[in-house]
Design a protein around this nucleic acid. Sequence first.
DNA 1: ATTCATAGACCGACCGGTCGGTTTATAACG
DNA 2: CGTTATAAACCGACCGGTCGGTCTATGAAT
Lengths: 202, 202
Amino acid sequence: MARKENIQNIARRKEQIIKAAITAFARTGLKGTSMNDIVRESGLSKGAIYWYYKSKDELISDLLKEFFDPEEIKKVGEVLVTGTALERLEKFIGYTIEEMNKMQRFRPVLQELFVIASRDQKIRKMAKRDFRVGVALLQSVIEYGVKSKEFRKVDPNMVAIAIFEIIEGTALFWSLDLMDVDFEKQMREGINLILDGIKVEK
Amino acid sequence: MARKENIQNIARRKEQIIKAAITAFARTGLKGTSMNDIVRESGLSKGAIYWYYKSKDELISDLLKEFFDPEEIKKVGEVLVTGTALERLEKFIGYTIEEMNKMQRFRPVLQELFVIASRDQKIRKMAKRDFRVGVALLQSVIEYGVKSKEFRKVDPNMVAIAIFEIIEGTALFWSLDLMDVDFEKQMREGINLILDGIKVEK
DNA sequence: ATTCATAGACCGACCGGTCGGTTTATAACG
DNA sequence: CGTTATAAACCGACCGGTCGGTCTATGAAT
């Protein structure tokens, strides 16, 4: 027999290509980036890229998994099972801010994926699943707070979505450099505004 | 004498082209829509469109003014000078919801403009000016509420931005069909959550 | 141990087609 | 007739994708 297929190497190469693609996409947008741009950015040849991905669409499909990965947020959920509701929320917010900072450069790509999602049912479904996992996570923390009498009786789903709106809204305004204030501060204070309204006075 | 330049007619034609462009862009995106698509949608010829706009970029530039028009929001400001702070806010929210419903079909175009704005300084400046006018408006209402003792002492700028985040966040989730609840209800309740926290108890 | 055969990994010139934009022809109207 | 307005044919640049070919790791045969 001849040379064996090196699965580990395939994964490494695909990662190399995806990373180059995200960088290029962040710079010039999904449609504005040609395969030749990705070729240049990756340091590989066009033939190599088409060896691993049979089309630009397939490449983008793979890239989507990096952005809409419910598994990752589920892992966060596992950590949110100790402490008061407020402490759990603080942990969640801390994680979110950390993640946002890490992804800042690629935020325009995510925003563009939202646009595509509004036209493409398949992508919209991925975004929806991701959204639902996140909301469910926050919702469970709010529910816990209501049960432990930290929060007054509220609709946990609605509150969870509202907090998510603050998070996504802050990220949007931040990526457009609309606010003069610090992104982390604005996000924390925005969420606290909501929490102030549902906290039970001592 | 030459035929008189019919300014009214030019404006009508331009509007016809812009309207067709927005419709086409909403369907297939800015880059994904060719000039020929716009030609088809408008019912005019390519020559006609290039008679009124000398490039696709110039067309998009004109289109931007429809989406980032500070004058329009300023008009709303003029109406928000009577009643209690809460009544003024209610007026503002009502106007926002009405506007969102009207623009629903074109929301993906706006979202796409945000993406472009994150890469294009000129467009970002337009978005920023629009944002600032809106925030200033909301902020003045909050300030009024603080002065009239309806609201407790809060940072009006921060609260205004938070409300805007709820608005934009709801619009985003709505356009992606992420929420199962009604968009208007979610938006109102999200904002009320914030207001509950800053209202002075009677 | 050396040679050979095979298939995975990779390269870059090239192709058909589409794009934004231009030019040319013609109609409408003063 | 000259000007304004519109339509249609056309252009070069560029795009996604292909394809013939090269290189290299590895098992089989000698």
